[in-house]
Design a protein around this nucleic acid. Sequence first.
DNA 1: GCAATATACTAGGACATCCAAGGGTTTGGA
DNA 2: TCCAAACCCTTGGATGTCCTAGTATATTGC
Lengths: 168, 168
Amino acid sequence: MGTPLPRDPIADARLNWERHGWSDVAAPMAAITAIMRTQQILLGRIEAVLKPFGLTFARYELLALLSFARSGALPMNKASALLQVHPTSVTNAVDRLQDAGLVMRSPHPTDGRTTLIELTPDGRALAKRATAVLNSEVFGQSGFGDQDVDQLIRILGTFRRNAGDFSG
Amino acid sequence: MGTPLPRDPIADARLNWERHGWSDVAAPMAAITAIMRTQQILLGRIEAVLKPFGLTFARYELLALLSFARSGALPMNKASALLQVHPTSVTNAVDRLQDAGLVMRSPHPTDGRTTLIELTPDGRALAKRATAVLNSEVFGQSGFGDQDVDQLIRILGTFRRNAGDFSG
DNA sequence: GCAATATACTAGGACATCCAAGGGTTTGGA
DNA sequence: TCCAAACCCTTGGATGTCCTAGTATATTGC
């Protein structure tokens, strides 16, 4: 975590795979490892930008999701499904956002099992400010070329559909 | 998490971005979010395969790295650099692998600050077995087409180099 | 040769994720 | 009608990641 390595560690791993007789899966191994590492880099950038706002990516994602909901409120299970994380992760995020006064829990009007999460005015304002900075500092300077962005969206979209994320 | 969603949540997020006047960064936002989600899916598959071996991905990566070292041993700081994780994460992984009898710590012959991590025979054997299953169950069935694998390696390789991962 | 700086590892804490289990609410079939 | 099954959320536990700080060892510079 510091100075650049003299060689690409993933390319090296691929060579090791090939040397050990696993040539047939060396390329996908390298691609998957590269996805892991890229996610790590991107998450680091995002967290660095959100830190001054007192937000983590998990909390930001929830705020952003709520800010796009017509009523500014969503059932927790809906948020869990849309964010594609475990329900306990949503509980965790809501606890902290609630402590920070950014969201509120309220009972569902007709289903006693369900809890609605609702943005507070503070939460809505913070989501707006954080999104602006995230757009300019991270998404606007992703380092991916326009064509590569399209390729990624296509390749990963196919993958996610095949993995059962969505049926559309 | 569960049943597939009727619509792609990332495509929906992209539409929301565009509707709110952030069209210029909507595409990279979607690509980055897709990388995050893809990583999550792949990590889930990998962890599921490793679980019967009593391994997590973090521990497996360390075992695999050691198994490729000529001497079967590496300094902890070297492992941290090659795996591109924080030194404390390596300490954590080594603690658990050591408890499981898969690696051993030994003092560096000339530098008193440095600790070497060394594979035990058990560790080497387990790495071999886990790799075989990982290759056949995950990397061999990644769901990416051959051309897409090449594209991913190229796009993410450029990204990682620009991010300062390596200089080669 | 010795003090100041740099490097290596570890301990403790904050967060996030998942799983397993538990308590409350709804739904549906006997 | 009524009880079992399904569903929703939360608590508690295990892991992993990072950061900050602290201890020990090397290296550097005067």
